[in-house]
Design a protein around this nucleic acid. Sequence first.
DNA 1: TCATAAAAGGATATTTTTGTCTTTTTTTAA
DNA 2: TTAAAAAAAGACAAAAATATCCTTTTATGA
Lengths: 151, 151
Amino acid sequence: MFSKACEYAMRAAVYIAKCSMEGKRVAVKEVAEATDIPEAFASKVLQRLARAGLVDSLRGKKGGFSMSASQQKRSLYEIVTLFEGEAYFNSCVLGLPVCSSQNPCPLHYQVVGLRDALKKSLQQTTIRKAATEVVDAGARLRFSSEDDESH
Amino acid sequence: MFSKACEYAMRAAVYIAKCSMEGKRVAVKEVAEATDIPEAFASKVLQRLARAGLVDSLRGKKGGFSMSASQQKRSLYEIVTLFEGEAYFNSCVLGLPVCSSQNPCPLHYQVVGLRDALKKSLQQTTIRKAATEVVDAGARLRFSSEDDESH
DNA sequence: TCATAAAAGGATATTTTTGTCTTTTTTTAA
DNA sequence: TTAAAAAAAGACAAAAATATCCTTTTATGA
């Protein structure tokens, strides 16, 4: 449904938010392990999130990534559009360059409403809210449980 | 949202259905032109649809593609899963290998319902129905209108 | 039977996505 | 001031998706 980069970005962002809520700055290495992302790729994804202002990064010893309260309030939609582009939610399901109520493709009415609902759902879901699911409901950001990290 | 191959497959299938409803068999060349798909790629996509039994193909002079009444009744969902895989609608939005109500990711409840609705909508939409939209409501399968095909 | 039209199949090319590795810059603290 | 730790940046590699081209097989009709 979404690209790997986008999936990774969401997992990483939620993990960083969770850490920031606990007042902890995290390094790429930890984010990568906690969310099952290849470390070097995680680094690229986080660079992109940082350049977009969705996370803060600090270089050097004791550096790492964090999210301010206002960053935690940004929506998952912002992450998705950063990696998939606005077109993901706006362009024609059949790939036509023009498709609207004026000029619909045969699936326009069929699909547009549902896709808009998905869009709105992601717009209304803050990164912080997703992080809270992890803390409160034990929702996961990686396959294996946090118990068997074995370190 | 969907891959090019999948978009092409849906456009091509709907066009072939429309032609078959008019009792006309069509060649790749015509399908490609009518739906704005690169011809060689259209050929590959149609081969795949044919192997999957979603369209009939006939070689040789007067050959081409067509869809029987029962093929026209197949759903768009079948085309999508042929090109995107079942996983498209079933796997975790965040890309986790395991994600269910037992073991949800932080977006599980948020997104799963909407994606299921999209799935059902595609399952309930037959290729024939989409083709009827084109015939009855003038819905389009390519950018420019059919008037300016200039031939 | 032979030329022609069409799909099928195979090979190849291009672009994008995914993933890795190495070097550089920045910061901290000893 | 220097070693260590961390992100940033750049180069590269591998895989997948997209796209094109060429050959082979099949059917038709003259």
